[in-house]
Design a protein around this nucleic acid. Sequence first.
DNA 1: TAGATTGTTAATCGATTAACAATC
DNA 2: TAGATTGTTAATCGATTAACAATC
Lengths: 214, 214
Amino acid sequence: MKNNTRVSNAIIRRLPRYRRYLGDLRSRGVKKISSNELSELIGYTASQIRQDLNTFGGFGQQGYGYSVDHLYAEINKILGLDREYKTVVVGVGHLGQAITNHILNYKFGFSIVGLFDVNPTIVGLAINGVKVQNSSELEDYVRNNNIDIGIICCGKDNAQEVADTLVRGGVEGIWNFAPIDLDIPERIAIENVHLSESLHTLSFLISSKEKENR
Amino acid sequence: MKNNTRVSNAIIRRLPRYRRYLGDLRSRGVKKISSNELSELIGYTASQIRQDLNTFGGFGQQGYGYSVDHLYAEINKILGLDREYKTVVVGVGHLGQAITNHILNYKFGFSIVGLFDVNPTIVGLAINGVKVQNSSELEDYVRNNNIDIGIICCGKDNAQEVADTLVRGGVEGIWNFAPIDLDIPERIAIENVHLSESLHTLSFLISSKEKENR
DNA sequence: TAGATTGTTAATCGATTAACAATC
DNA sequence: TAGATTGTTAATCGATTAACAATC
């Protein structure tokens, strides 16, 4: 695997998608695939697929194609899915619970270790067998348990404060569902899921289609 | 507002973000803003901001800048947020409930009209005052109530079937949370939220940062 | 060996940035 | 009017596609 010096954002967004399609192929027992066949399935050009993969290394074999198993394993490595991530969820409303479920049903190396909330009527309850703790204990917990990822599912008013706490506790990355752009150090990875913006993208697309069809 | 002939995806993704920042400014009572000031806040170059806005029309005033109120209203129009959208949620697990809450707390023109599930132990329950119906009634319901948007929160095995049903019922757009690429007619708008892919992007970023810091 | 398909270089296309004339 | 800032054209940069030599 080549050294990934500044992989473009466009490529980064395509990688998990490659993984998903390769995982499907793999579970269907497909052994080999060419960039052309993959192009057919996934919708990127064969040329782009080869370019993308060669950013990280030569995973194919001329005249043959790609071994599905091997390529899947390599993409998992590229995505950092060859290790375990311990996570905490902060804010255990419906969204926090949905994310908790989502991760607990996951095969690949993410575990929910702690749940946190500020609401005293929720603190102490067990969700999926994990007890909800008071957010005041978040920093110590993250530090003492070597938590890797903090998942922010609280409202936007507390989100920056929670992020600061997670960073002080020593997380490596933050998965943020609050509708705000967090201010965090360069060394910490951040991935935002802005649901409102996604919904507004949909309404934009609906409006566009309407205009087209007029 | 100009005719939006094929707006690039890059621009589309930035529009809801402009809206969010302008909404914040507005609620803080700010009356005018220049592309330079907005650049400072939002992190795009002033040049890009002006280019983006001028895709849709000239909303500013030379020598002055942009009226926050006016620009916010225009972006709402561009995003199609000057109308009402009736929605149904299919699959009322934690995620479906989280999305339902999210939308019900929304100020801008999205209403949850129907909830649907296949699970008989959930059908009949009321969630946020909306009764859960059996998915077998989905198509008729969508048709008879002029539903605009279908929100897919079920598992990936049923997702394509649900999408087909929604399309037959006559929705204009689909907000899809199932980890699959749906096959739908060109005239229907689609927006995917692939949570797993988002999480895998985060693990990729964590791995990259680790390598950088070595 | 011949055929197939990758890996990689070169060409094209599109998006971002810079510059500045228009104008409030 | 002078200063400021937009709207827009031109220049640059980066990403995608095309082409083909390398090679299994």
